[in-house]
């Protein structure tokens, strides 16, 4: 209970454990419908429900839910068009899907005992997916010109290989930082929440013993205040990280969509 790491434990739901298989290359795979899958499914269903309710009877004068949906839509739409430019509309569905899924998983983590985005597997999937899309679009649109991304024409000729090498590695690191940023924020936030919540429980236990232990009461109260403040901060972080993920996806897409004619 007091283990702040225990919340990240992946456990198959009862009756949905299909055992382990060993595949070549990938290694051992545990086939099961776990709590992580459940959280992802919930987020997925909630996103669809939200979008369905907010758009099913879309009117020119929006209702409350439609206004909320349109705010999200408009935010990502503006983002895509201001960063990617005219082609932004083509990539909008991808960025919007990414944003809504990450946002809903983050927010669900504030209400459930399990946060899907605190699983590195999940954030790495998002990161690699974005990265793969960027590479595929880059090569499909520019052919071999894609590698011009690593040939900085603005740098002196002598330095270009060095700068290009650095560019190349920082490009390769993109999915890693994308995944780690989201993962680390969610992990850190939830660990801190659990640690402070654990303080309250154990300090109250000390206080209940009476005597000198009563001095633990103000500290417990302090911990409670900390938990409340951290909860508010985590809601902000949940939104901010989804937004940052969307912004970075747009920036990375812009790199390859508008390659060679920077704007």
């Amino acid at each position: 209970m007091a283990d702040p790491i225990h919340q990240f434990q992946i456990t198959p739901l009862p009756g949905l454990d299909f055992g382990e298989v060993t595949l070549p290359v990938i290694g051992t795979v545990h086939l099961a419908f776990t709590n992580s899958h459940l959280a992802m499914t919930l987020a997925f269903v909630l996103v669809i429900a939200f979008l369905q309710v907010s758009t099913s009877r879309a009117q020119v004068v929006p209702g409350r839910l439609q206004a909320a949906g349109e705010t999200m839509f408009g935010m990502i739409d503006n983002l895509a068009q201001s960063i990617i430019g005219h082609d932004g509309r083509k990539y909008f569905p991808f960025v919007f899907t990414l944003f809504m899924l990450v946002l809903m998983m983050n927010l669900l983590g504030m209400f459930l005992t399990f946060t899907a985005t605190s699983q590195l597997a999940v954030t790495a999937t998002f990161g690699v997916l974005t990265f793969a899309l960027v590479v595929i679009i880059g090569i499909a649109k520019n052919g071999l010109g894609f590698f011009g991304l690593f040939w900085p024409t603005s740098a002196p000729l002598l330095l270009r290989p060095v700068v290009g090498l650095i560019e190349f590695f920082s490009f390769l690191l993109r999915p890693v930082t994308l995944a780690l940023r989201l993962f680390g924020n969610m992990l850190g936030g939830h660990v801190a929440l659990k640690i402070f919540a654990g303080f309250i429980v154990s300090l109250m236990g000390v206080a209940l013993a009476g005597g000198v232990g009563l001095f633990a009461l103000p500290v417990a109260a302090l911990s409670l205040g900390m938990v409340i403040a951290l909860t508010a901060l985590e809601f902000l972080v949940a939104f901010l990280q989804a937004f940052v993920f969307a912004v970075l996806a747009c920036i990375y897409l812009n790199d390859v969509v508008n390659l060679g004619h920077g704007h």
Partner: peptide, 10 residues
């Protein structure tokens, strides 16, 4: 999070 047998499924 580093129990890699759960990664592929997720």
């Amino acid at each position: 999070q580093f129990e890699f047998q759960h990664w592929a499924g997720q």
